[in-house]
Protein backbone atom coordinates (compact mmCIF):
# COMPACT_ATOMS: atom_id res chain seq x y z
CA UNK A 1 0.00 0.00 0.00
CA UNK A 2 2.64 2.53 1.08
CA UNK A 3 5.06 1.47 -1.64
CA UNK A 4 2.32 1.90 -4.21
CA UNK A 5 1.91 5.50 -3.08
CA UNK A 6 5.67 5.97 -3.10
CA UNK A 7 5.77 4.75 -6.71
CA UNK A 8 3.58 7.68 -7.76
CA UNK A 9 5.73 10.45 -9.28
CA UNK A 10 5.43 13.73 -7.37
CA UNK A 11 3.17 14.88 -4.59
CA UNK A 12 0.40 12.33 -3.77
CA UNK A 13 -2.04 15.08 -2.74
CA UNK A 14 -1.71 16.61 -6.22
CA UNK A 15 -2.67 13.23 -7.64
CA UNK A 16 -5.73 13.21 -5.42
CA UNK A 17 -6.66 16.55 -6.96
CA UNK A 18 -5.85 15.37 -10.49
CA UNK A 19 -8.05 12.30 -10.12
CA UNK A 20 -10.85 14.41 -8.61
CA UNK A 21 -10.68 16.88 -11.49
CA UNK A 22 -10.64 14.08 -14.06
CA UNK A 23 -13.74 12.61 -12.42
CA UNK A 24 -15.56 15.94 -12.62
CA UNK A 25 -14.64 16.71 -16.21
CA UNK A 26 -15.14 13.08 -17.17
CA UNK A 27 -18.65 13.14 -15.72
CA UNK A 28 -19.37 16.42 -17.51
CA UNK A 29 -18.16 15.10 -20.86
CA UNK A 30 -20.13 11.88 -20.40
CA UNK A 31 -23.24 13.89 -19.51
CA UNK A 32 -22.81 16.04 -22.62
CA UNK A 33 -22.37 12.93 -24.79
CA UNK A 34 -25.48 11.36 -23.30
CA UNK A 35 -27.60 14.50 -23.56
CA UNK A 36 -26.55 14.87 -27.20
CA UNK A 37 -28.53 11.72 -27.96
CA UNK A 38 -31.74 13.45 -26.91
CA UNK A 39 -31.39 16.11 -29.62
CA UNK A 40 -28.60 15.29 -32.11
CA UNK A 41 -29.69 17.86 -34.68
CA UNK A 42 -29.98 20.68 -32.14
CA UNK A 43 -26.58 19.87 -30.65
CA UNK A 44 -24.95 19.71 -34.11
CA UNK A 45 -26.54 23.02 -35.07
CA UNK A 46 -25.30 24.66 -31.86
CA UNK A 47 -21.87 23.13 -32.23
CA UNK A 48 -21.55 24.59 -35.74
CA UNK A 49 -21.19 28.01 -34.12
CA UNK A 50 -17.93 27.01 -32.43
CA UNK A 51 -14.50 28.05 -33.64
CA UNK A 52 -12.86 24.67 -34.29
CA UNK A 53 -9.65 26.12 -35.73
CA UNK A 54 -9.09 28.28 -32.65
CA UNK A 55 -9.68 25.31 -30.37
CA UNK A 56 -7.31 23.11 -32.37
CA UNK A 57 -4.67 25.81 -32.22
CA UNK A 58 -5.23 26.01 -28.47
CA UNK A 59 -4.44 22.29 -28.19
CA UNK A 60 -1.03 22.91 -29.74
CA UNK A 61 -0.53 25.91 -27.43
CA UNK A 62 -1.31 23.89 -24.31
CA UNK A 63 0.75 20.79 -25.14
CA UNK A 64 3.70 23.02 -25.93
CA UNK A 65 3.21 24.86 -22.67
CA UNK A 66 3.14 21.50 -20.89
CA UNK A 67 6.42 20.59 -22.57
CA UNK A 68 7.98 23.78 -21.22
CA UNK A 69 6.68 22.94 -17.74
CA UNK A 70 8.49 19.58 -17.84
CA UNK A 71 11.66 21.36 -18.93
CA UNK A 72 11.23 23.65 -15.93
CA UNK A 73 11.02 20.66 -13.59
CA UNK A 74 14.22 19.25 -15.08
CA UNK A 75 15.96 22.61 -14.67
CA UNK A 76 14.75 22.83 -11.07
CA UNK A 77 16.09 19.35 -10.34
CA UNK A 78 19.45 20.38 -11.87
CA UNK A 79 19.30 23.50 -9.64
CA UNK A 80 19.38 25.79 -12.64
CA UNK A 81 17.08 28.45 -11.25
CA UNK A 82 17.35 30.96 -14.10
CA UNK A 83 16.52 28.32 -16.69
CA UNK A 84 13.66 27.03 -14.55
CA UNK A 85 12.15 30.50 -14.32
CA UNK A 86 12.56 31.12 -18.04
CA UNK A 87 10.79 27.85 -18.86
CA UNK A 88 7.98 28.57 -16.41
CA UNK A 89 7.58 32.11 -17.75
CA UNK A 90 7.29 30.73 -21.28
CA UNK A 91 4.80 28.10 -20.12
CA UNK A 92 2.74 30.80 -18.37
CA UNK A 93 2.91 33.04 -21.45
CA UNK A 94 1.45 30.22 -23.56
CA UNK A 95 -1.24 29.84 -20.92
CA UNK A 96 -2.09 33.49 -21.45
CA UNK A 97 -2.14 32.90 -25.22
CA UNK A 98 -4.63 30.09 -24.62
CA UNK A 99 -6.83 32.42 -22.59
CA UNK A 100 -6.67 35.14 -25.24
CA UNK A 101 -7.79 32.72 -27.96
CA UNK A 102 -10.48 31.40 -25.62
CA UNK A 103 -11.57 34.93 -24.81
CA UNK A 104 -11.95 35.74 -28.51
CA UNK A 105 -14.06 32.63 -28.88
CA UNK A 106 -16.33 33.73 -26.02
CA UNK A 107 -16.51 37.27 -27.41
CA UNK A 108 -17.56 35.92 -30.82
CA UNK A 109 -20.31 33.84 -29.17
CA UNK A 110 -21.47 36.84 -27.22
CA UNK A 111 -21.54 38.97 -30.39
CA UNK A 112 -23.84 36.37 -31.97
CA UNK A 113 -26.12 36.67 -28.97
CA UNK A 114 -25.27 33.19 -27.72
CA UNK A 115 -25.18 32.51 -23.99
CA UNK A 116 -25.45 29.42 -21.81
CA UNK A 117 -29.23 29.41 -22.04
CA UNK A 118 -29.40 29.46 -25.86
CA UNK A 119 -29.29 25.68 -26.08
CA UNK A 120 -28.45 22.76 -23.77
CA UNK A 121 -25.25 22.33 -25.76
CA UNK A 122 -24.12 25.80 -24.79
CA UNK A 123 -24.82 25.12 -21.13
CA UNK A 124 -22.29 22.29 -21.33
CA UNK A 125 -19.99 24.30 -23.56
CA UNK A 126 -19.76 27.20 -21.11
CA UNK A 127 -19.63 24.98 -18.05
CA UNK A 128 -16.88 22.71 -19.36
CA UNK A 129 -14.71 25.23 -21.19
CA UNK A 130 -15.38 27.85 -18.49
CA UNK A 131 -14.32 25.51 -15.69
CA UNK A 132 -11.32 24.54 -17.76
CA UNK A 133 -10.37 28.16 -18.43
CA UNK A 134 -10.66 28.85 -14.69
CA UNK A 135 -8.15 26.04 -14.16
CA UNK A 136 -5.84 27.61 -16.75
CA UNK A 137 -5.96 30.84 -14.73
CA UNK A 138 -5.28 28.92 -11.51
CA UNK A 139 -2.47 27.03 -13.24
CA UNK A 140 -0.78 30.24 -14.37
CA UNK A 141 -0.93 31.57 -10.82
CA UNK A 142 0.44 28.28 -9.47
CA UNK A 143 3.31 28.22 -11.97
CA UNK A 144 4.14 31.80 -11.01
CA UNK A 145 4.20 30.76 -7.37
CA UNK A 146 6.51 27.80 -7.86
CA UNK A 147 8.77 29.93 -10.07
CA UNK A 148 9.55 31.99 -6.98
CA UNK A 149 10.07 29.01 -4.65
CA UNK A 150 13.48 27.38 -4.70
CA UNK A 151 12.09 23.89 -4.36
CA UNK A 152 12.19 21.31 -7.16
CA UNK A 153 9.38 19.39 -5.45
CA UNK A 154 7.12 22.45 -5.61
CA UNK A 155 7.91 22.95 -9.29
CA UNK A 156 7.03 19.32 -9.94
CA UNK A 157 3.72 19.73 -8.10
CA UNK A 158 2.83 22.93 -9.96
CA UNK A 159 3.74 21.34 -13.28
CA UNK A 160 1.58 18.30 -12.45
CA UNK A 161 -1.43 20.60 -12.04
CA UNK A 162 -0.60 22.17 -15.39
CA UNK A 163 -0.45 18.76 -17.08
CA UNK A 164 -3.87 17.95 -15.65
CA UNK A 165 -5.21 21.10 -17.30
CA UNK A 166 -3.56 19.91 -20.51
CA UNK A 167 -5.01 16.41 -20.21
CA UNK A 168 -8.52 17.70 -19.58
CA UNK A 169 -8.31 19.88 -22.68
CA UNK A 170 -7.26 17.08 -25.04
CA UNK A 171 -10.21 14.98 -23.81
CA UNK A 172 -12.61 17.92 -23.95
CA UNK A 173 -11.64 18.99 -27.46
CA UNK A 174 -13.11 16.08 -29.47
CA UNK A 175 -16.26 15.78 -27.36
CA UNK A 176 -17.15 19.47 -27.41
CA UNK A 177 -15.78 20.56 -30.79
CA UNK A 178 -15.63 17.57 -33.14
CA UNK A 179 -18.18 14.85 -32.39
CA UNK A 180 -21.62 15.43 -33.87
Amino acid sequence: MTDLIDELPGEPMMWVLIVSELLVFGAGLAALSAMRLTDPAGFAEAQAHLDRAGAALNTVVLVTSGFLAVLAVRAAEAEREARKRACLAAAMALGVVFLVIKGQEYAAKSAQGIDWETHAFFTFYYLLTGFHAAHVVAGIVLLGLVAVLRDPRATETGAAFWHMVDLVWVLLFPVVYLIR
Binding site: S20, L23, V24, A27, A31, W116, E117, T123, F124, L127
Partner: peptide
Protein backbone atom coordinates in the same frame (compact mmCIF):
# COMPACT_ATOMS: atom_id res chain seq x y z
CA UNK B 1 -31.19 29.72 -9.59
CA UNK B 2 -29.81 29.33 -13.14
CA UNK B 3 -30.07 25.96 -14.88
CA UNK B 4 -26.36 25.22 -14.97
CA UNK B 5 -26.57 24.43 -11.28
CA UNK B 6 -28.36 21.22 -12.22
CA UNK B 7 -25.18 19.87 -13.78
CA UNK B 8 -22.75 21.39 -11.29
CA UNK B 9 -24.87 20.06 -8.44
CA UNK B 10 -25.35 16.62 -9.96
CA UNK B 11 -21.69 16.08 -10.80
CA UNK B 12 -20.05 17.46 -7.68
CA UNK B 13 -22.55 16.07 -5.21
CA UNK B 14 -22.21 12.62 -6.79
CA UNK B 15 -18.57 12.80 -5.73
CA UNK B 16 -19.58 13.54 -2.14
CA UNK B 17 -19.87 9.81 -1.64
CA UNK B 18 -16.07 9.55 -1.97
Amino acid sequence: TPGYWQWIGSIFSSLEVI
